[in-house]
């Protein structure tokens, strides 16, 4: 213990990388959560296929929407609980006494969960396209890009919402409040342009709608212009949520 700590002006790539690596290490140790993150979406997709096995066209319509919902739903849940834990266990406070910026923390989480989402999407898309014969006209890799953008959105929203929960129990309650309305309005049940006018407008300002639009577009068309526009909108929402999340991360608290 004779070496002094180096100066604080080190690049934050180091800190962001440290946080992303640490989050992934925690996930690797938590086998159940990892299984839920990676295997469950494939099983649910297969269940959906089975449910509509006698009505082939419906799976082709709903399947893509579900591919958009999984990453958003799961990453929202995992992030809101893990960041709440950081706040309540004192680890976030400790990190704030160290050379860590808010952005390091947010990006570290976004990168870690973005990577998990990429693997999740590869598996879910692989099962849907390879085994369940989901019809995809556009490039399959773009499905994965949409899923990752969507997962980062879920992560950002989860980070933001965790500031308003005191317990993990409360954090989980935000799921029906914040996520379920988006699932109802995203075009999964009724195509968005057939919704009552007020609900259609509401669905226009909800980010999940654009992720679902992008997935659906990829299954029906080889053109990618609209898909990129939708991905841009999802990323825009994610950045806005990260900014809001950053505002809730305070070095000094009461």
């Amino acid at each position: 213990m004779n070496t002094h700590r180096p100066s604080t002006h080190a690049p934050s790539v180091r800190v962001t990388g440290a946080i992303a690596t640490r989050v992934l290490t925690q996930l690797r140790r938590d086998h159940r959560t990892l299984a839920m993150l990676l295997v469950l979406p494939c099983l649910l997709q297969a269940l959906l296929w089975w449910v509509f096995s006698d009505q082939g066209a419906i799976f082709d319509r709903i399947g893509p929407a579900l591919l958009a919902i999984f990453p958003f739903f799961v990453m929202f849940l995992v992030t809101s609980v893990t960041t709440l834990r950081e706040r309540s266990s004192g680890t976030l406070e400790r990190l704030f006494t160290m050379p860590m910026q808010r952005l390091d923390f947010l990006l570290g989480y976004a990168i870690a969960f973005g990577l998990v989402a990429a693997v999740q999407a590869l598996l879910a898309v692989g099962v849907s396209v390879g085994l369940l014969d989901l019809d995809v006209r556009g490039p399959v890799w773009l499905l994965v890009v949409v899923a990752v953008a969507d997962a980062v959105l879920g992560t950002a929203l989860g980070l933001f919402v965790s500031a308003f929960a005191r317990t993990e129990f409360q954090a989980v309650q935000f799921l029906p409040a914040v996520v379920v309305p988006q699932i109802l309005l995203c075009g999964l049940l009724v195509p968005r342009d057939q919704l009552p006018r007020v609900l259609e407008i509401a669905s226009d300002v909800l980010p999940l709608s654009y992720a679902v639009d992008a997935m659906t577009e990829l299954t029906v068309s080889t053109a990618t212009g609209e898909v990129w526009r939708d991905v841009g909108i999802v990323v825009g929402f994610a950045v806005a949520c990260l900014a809001l999340g950053a505002a809730t991360l305070r070095r000094r608290t009461e």
């Binding site: 700590r5 180096p6 100066s7 604080t8 180091r14 800190v15 990388g17 440290a18 946080i19 690596t21 640490r22 290490t25 925690q26 140790r29 938590d30 266990s89 004192g90 680890t91 406070e93 400790r94 990190l95 006494t97 160290m98 050379p99 860590m100």
Partner: peptide, 30 residues
């Protein structure tokens, strides 16, 4: 931020990581 070491009553470490993993993580941040 690199000159003051702080320990709260709550220990403020990650329960799901090993001792070495916790230390290596915070060392990297520092």
């Amino acid at each position: 931020r690199t000159r003051v070491g702080y320990m709260t009553q709550a220990s403020s470490v990650y329960d799901d990581l090993s001792v070495g993993e916790n230390l290596r993580f915070f060392a990297r941040v520092l």
